[in-house]
């Protein structure tokens, strides 16, 4: 009777007096024991490390065992910031500040881009790189903004030319559409993150806690706008290239194996300044501001221009608007 066999087995395991239970009990004891042993050994390693002179080992130890950023208490945040500032300043041999300012109430950031004005000069792409400390190794540069070149006919994002090497721009019969993180109100990347390392801040910016990211790249798969980048290698960034004004959730130097993306230049906008791409645009196509302030430039754009959002049908609710005069 093959059907009885599994039933029998289940009965045996559920009864406490059965011979199988002693095996499971002993396994539990073993697990408890090994847990104790591993805790002791971890503590031992911690005492060893905290006692040794190698400050970088202590820092990396503390960084590996810190909490997720948004669950940290104010003291823990301050300690983490202090650790990072010391480590970065030593590594880049210049004073690096790491900001931890929080979202202000009554602020919801949004950006807009005038497609009729954009000439595809990629100055925003380069300005973003200068500001946000992306990896720059020879022949390979991480960029958060991608400029799509489209022919006059309506084109899908997937069919557009990304790597155009024109002598001069704008080319006749072409239009240009920069895409980057759309800072969705309903972000698919946040939904799929298994460890909640990426999340939406209260002012609407979707951020990545680099120390909590496990590098599974689910968010890269989920993003319909190709906005996220992965550090496949140890990022290359020289001391001269480093922008020393950083934010914990923004442009602080990243490590290998973590995902990064546009943060609306969180280190700038939390201090009141426009993002780097907005300032760099030579034709003034990019606008930025507070969506909750009806006197802001962005609200005037939304009120007076023809506006659309990319891939609206996906219900991601982007806060990045494209418009035309």
């Amino acid at each position: 009777m093959p059907e009885n066999i599994p039933l029998k087995e289940i009965d045996v395991t559920e009864k406490p007096e059965s011979p199988g239970s002693s095996a499971s009990l002993s396994r539990r004891k073993l697990l408890e024991f090994s847990a104790k042993v591993s805790t002791v050994s971890l503590l031992g390693a911690a005492t060893l490390l905290s006692g040794c002179d190698d400050s970088s080992a202590q820092v990396s130890w503390a960084e590996n065992f810190q909490k997720a950023y948004r669950l940290m208490s104010a003291d823990e945040v301050a300690a983490a910031i202090k650790r990072l500032e010391a480590r970065y300043s030593e590594h880049f041999s210049k004073a690096v500040s790491v900001d931890s300012s929080k979202a202000e109430p009554g602020v919801l950031f949004g950006a807009a881009l005038n497609l009729q004005k954009c000439i595809g000069c990629r100055r925003c792409v380069k300005a973003c790189t200068l500001e946000n400390n992306q990896s720059r190794t020879e022949g390979e540069e991480t960029e958060w903004i991608r400029v799509l070149k489209m022919e006059q006919e309506p084109t899908q994002q997937e069919d557009a030319e990304h790597y155009y090497q024109s002598e001069s721009v704008p080319q006749q019969n072409a239009h240009y559409m920069p895409i980057s993180c759309m800072q969705c109100e309903n972000p698919p990347c946040v939904k799929v993150c298994p460890v909640q390392a990426t999340y939406r801040e209260d002012d609407g910016i979707v951020v990545v806690d680099y120390n909590w990211c496990i590098g599974c790249r689910m968010c890269i798969q989920a993003c319909p706008y190709w906005a996220r980048r992965f550090n496949w290698r140890e990022p290359g960034l020289s001391s001269e290239q480093l922008n020393p004004n950083t934010h914990y959730l923004g442009n602080r130097p990243r490590m290998k194996g973590v995902v990064e993306k546009c943060t609306f230049c969180i280190q700038r906008v939390r201090k009141g300044r426009n993002p780097a791409c907005v300032e760099a645009c030579p034709v003034g196509a990019r606008k930025f501001g507070n969506l909750l302030d009806e006197n802001s430039e962005i609200r005037k754009v939304l009120a007076s221009k023809r506006v659309f959002r990319l891939k609206e049908e996906l219900n991601t609710e982007p806060k990045f608007f494209y418009f035309a005069d």
Binding site: C121, V125, Y163, Y164, P170, Q172
Partner: peptide
């Protein structure tokens, strides 16, 4: 003037196709 009413300028080139 050109297509977009702005003088043609040379674009910044990007260095990589490896994403």
């Amino acid at each position: 003037e050109s297509e977009n009413g702005f003088k043609a300028i040379s674009p910044e080139q990007i260095t990589t196709k490896d994403r």
